[in-house]
Design a protein around this nucleic acid. Structure first.
Lengths: 137, 137
DNA sequence: ATAATTTGTAACTATAATGGTTACAAATGA
DNA sequence: TCATTTGTAACCATTATAGTTACAAATTAT
């Protein structure tokens, strides 16, 4: 139940890009808003780009912009860009000689799967535009 | 989005206790099923006891048992015993001189709160008895 | 062309969380 | 009185992450 900040940082960045749609923002500029190192930003952006959410241009006067309108970027898509590890962690080696240990894993997967699905559906109800409007209200 | 195993281990333990309602189980016995060290079990059990889910008796022929019927232990209560850190991590120091950075935190809290609430409600739909029956089916 | 800028990425460090382990006092029952 | 078991502190190893430095490749501006 931890806590990597990449999802949170991603929403921050996407909202920032949505607020300045006319220009490319550099990693340096974005890092100033998030208050971290530009390389941290580029790492996060790499995932977002791989999922088609942002585009970059290297070189002088390069930078980043959204690749779709903010109302078309749902937060579940942002979440998916980082959901390599499951949210609810599973313990690894239950004793399969125990009747409970032998079957607990699939039982937990069923429950955890439903729980994460519920969260995912909630995230699908918000877009980057929603977040921007919340901030500007 | 990681992954501490305490929630998962807890459900395993509670299901095991539910399967053997007649006897006290020792940390050693429980650890054998979970396949870990007895101290890890006692640590987890401490949280569960603090939330009224299990009872212990120290000393010879001591051990652990559920403090309520398994159909009265909802998985959301188990989750609550460990939800000290929020599931979706927040980045810490957005730049408050930036209009977005200044307001992103409460906006994220609103979204994350709803997402976690959805997950919590899903967990409230399952009890330890449900997990046990799933395993025994 | 050349220089300046910016991404893209590898490599490394520091920090924090976690699981696992040892050790031992306190409680309890046989 | 002794054996057993919880309760807990202390420590170590591992892992994930954020942050940092460094530099090649790409691109634009002059």
């Amino acid at each position: 139940m931890n806590t990597n900040q990449q999802f949170s940082i991603s929403i921050h960045i996407l909202t920032l890009l949505a607020a300045m749609p006319e220009q490319l923002l550099t990693s340096e500029q974005i890092a100033a808003s998030v208050n971290t190192n530009p390389v941290v930003i580029r790492r996060v952006m790499g995932h977002l780009r791989a999922h088609g959410l942002v585009e970059s241009r290297p070189g002088a006067s390069g930078g980043w912009k959204l690749s779709r309108a903010p109302e078309q970027i749902h937060l579940c898509s942002v979440y998916d860009a980082f959901s390599h590890t499951d949210l609810l962690g599973m313990h690894r080696h239950p004793n399969t000689n125990c009747p409970i240990g032998a079957k607990i894993t699939p039982a937990l997967e069923k429950v955890f799967g439903q729980a994460e699905k519920a969260m995912h559906e909630t995230l699908s109800g918000f877009t980057v535009k929603d977040v921007l409007e919340e901030i500007q209200s």
